[in-house]
Deep mutational scan, measured.
Amino acid sequence: TTIEWNGTKITVDNPQKAKELAKKIAKKLGLTVKVHGNTITIE
């Protein structure tokens, strides 16, 4: 699972952990999480 935001890509083996990490990042930055299959985008 890949997390993408602002040109940065982070690959996380565990999809559940990836989703939790994305939510934490999005919350800190005041952004939203969008899931597209194996890609999680923070916008």
Rank of each mutant, 00 (worst) to 15 (best):
T1L: 10
T1S: 08
T1H: 09
T1C: 14
T1N: 07
T1E: 05
T1K: 05
T1V: 14
T1D: 05
T1F: 14
T1G: 07
T2Q: 09
T2G: 06
T2I: 13
T2Y: 07
T2F: 09
T2N: 07
T2M: 09
T2H: 09
T2C: 13
I3G: 07
I3Q: 06
I3L: 06
I3S: 05
I3Y: 03
I3N: 06
I3K: 06
I3E: 05
I3W: 03
E4G: 07
E4M: 12
E4T: 08
E4Y: 13
E4D: 08
E4H: 13
E4S: 10
E4R: 10
W5C: 10
W5M: 05
W5F: 12
W5E: 02
W5Y: 10
W5Q: 02
W5H: 04
W5I: 10
W5R: 03
W5V: 08
N6D: 07
N6V: 08
N6R: 10
N6W: 15
N6A: 09
N6P: 08
N6L: 12
N6I: 08
N6Q: 10
N6S: 08
G7V: 10
G7E: 06
G7N: 07
G7S: 07
G7R: 05
G7M: 06
G7Y: 11
G7H: 08
G7T: 08
G7I: 10
G7F: 10
G7P: 04
T8I: 15
T8L: 15
T8S: 09
T8H: 15
T8Y: 15
T8C: 15
T8D: 05
T8M: 15
K9E: 04
K9N: 05
K9D: 02
K9G: 02
K9H: 08
K9F: 11
K9P: 02
K9Y: 10
K9W: 09
K9A: 06
I10W: 12
I10P: 00
I10F: 09
I10S: 01
I10D: 00
I10E: 00
I10H: 02
T11D: 03
T11A: 05
T11P: 02
T11G: 02
T11V: 14
T11F: 14
T11K: 10
T11Y: 15
T11L: 12
V12F: 13
V12P: 01
V12W: 03
V12E: 01
V12Y: 06
V12M: 12
V12C: 15
V12Q: 02
V12D: 00
D13F: 14
D13K: 13
D13V: 11
D13P: 10
D13Q: 14
D13Y: 14
D13W: 15
D13S: 14
D13L: 14
N14V: 03
N14Y: 04
N14L: 04
N14T: 11
N14K: 03
N14F: 04
N14H: 05
N14Q: 03
N14R: 03
P15M: 14
P15R: 11
P15V: 10
P15H: 13
P15T: 05
P15Q: 06
P15Y: 14
P15K: 09
Q16S: 09
Q16W: 14
Q16E: 11
Q16L: 11
Q16V: 12
Q16G: 08
Q16R: 14
Q16P: 02
K17R: 12
K17W: 12
K17C: 15
K17N: 06
K17D: 06
K17L: 12
K17F: 11
K17H: 09
K17M: 11
A18K: 00
A18S: 01
A18V: 03
A18E: 00
A18F: 05
A18Y: 04
A18P: 01
A18I: 04
A18Q: 00
A18L: 04
A18T: 02
K19P: 01
K19S: 06
K19N: 07
K19R: 14
K19E: 09
K19C: 15
K19D: 03
K19A: 10
K19V: 14
E20M: 15
E20I: 14
E20C: 09
E20G: 06
E20N: 11
E20V: 13
E20K: 14
E20P: 01
E20S: 13
L21Q: 02
L21P: 00
L21V: 05
L21E: 01
L21H: 02
L21N: 00
A22L: 04
A22R: 02
A22H: 00
A22N: 00
A22S: 02
A22T: 01
A22P: 00
A22W: 04
A22V: 03
A22M: 03
A22C: 02
K23W: 15
K23L: 14
K23Y: 15
K23N: 11
K23M: 14
K23E: 13
K23P: 01
K23R: 13
K23V: 11
K23D: 13
K23F: 14
K23S: 09
K24S: 08
K24R: 14
K24L: 13
K24D: 04
K24C: 15
K24G: 04
I25Y: 04
I25E: 00
I25N: 00
I25F: 07
I25H: 01
I25V: 02
I25P: 00
I25T: 01
I25S: 00
I25M: 07
I25R: 01
I25G: 00
A26Y: 06
A26R: 14
A26G: 05
A26M: 07
A26L: 05
A26V: 03
A26E: 03
A26T: 04
A26N: 03
K27D: 10
K27G: 07
K27V: 07
K27L: 13
K27N: 09
K27M: 12
K27C: 10
K27I: 09
K27W: 07
K28E: 10
K28T: 08
K28L: 13
K28F: 13
K28G: 05
K28Q: 09
K28V: 11
K28I: 12
K28P: 02
K28W: 15
K28Y: 14
L29V: 03
L29H: 11
L29Q: 04
L29F: 15
L29G: 03
L29W: 14
L29I: 04
G30C: 07
G30I: 01
G30H: 07
G30V: 01
G30K: 06
G30W: 04
G30E: 02
G30S: 03
G30N: 06
G30F: 03
G30D: 02
G30P: 01
L31A: 10
L31M: 13
L31G: 12
L31W: 10
L31Q: 03
L31F: 09
L31S: 03
L31R: 05
L31V: 08
T32R: 10
T32E: 06
T32Q: 10
T32N: 08
T32I: 12
T32W: 04
T32L: 09
T32V: 13
V33S: 02
V33G: 01
V33K: 00
V33T: 04
V33L: 10
V33D: 00
V33E: 01
V33F: 10
V33R: 00
V33A: 05
V33Y: 10
K34S: 11
K34P: 00
K34C: 12
K34F: 10
K34N: 08
K34E: 05
K34V: 11
K34G: 02
V35T: 05
V35Q: 07
V35A: 04
V35S: 04
V35W: 09
V35D: 02
V35H: 06
H36A: 10
H36V: 13
H36D: 12
H36G: 03
H36K: 11
H36C: 15
H36S: 12
H36L: 11
H36N: 13
G37S: 03
G37R: 04
G37Y: 04
G37E: 06
G37C: 06
G37T: 03
G37K: 04
G37F: 04
G37M: 05
G37L: 06
G37Q: 05
G37A: 05
N38M: 07
N38I: 04
N38Y: 04
N38D: 07
N38E: 03
N38S: 10
N38G: 05
T39D: 03
T39L: 09
T39I: 12
T39F: 07
T39Y: 09
T39K: 09
T39P: 01
T39M: 09
I40R: 00
I40P: 00
I40F: 03
I40D: 00
I40H: 01
I40Y: 03
I40T: 01
I40M: 03
I40E: 00
T41K: 09
T41C: 08
T41M: 11
T41G: 02
T41R: 11
T41V: 12
T41A: 04
T41F: 14
T41L: 13
T41N: 04
T41P: 00
T41D: 02
T41W: 14
I42S: 01
I42L: 15
I42G: 00
I42P: 00
I42N: 00
I42C: 03
I42K: 01
I42E: 00
I42T: 01
I42D: 00
I42V: 06
I42Y: 02
I42A: 01
E43H: 10
E43G: 13
E43K: 10
E43Q: 12
E43V: 14
E43W: 14
E43C: 15
E43R: 11
E43M: 14
E43Y: 15
E43I: 14
E43A: 11
E43N: 08
E43S: 13
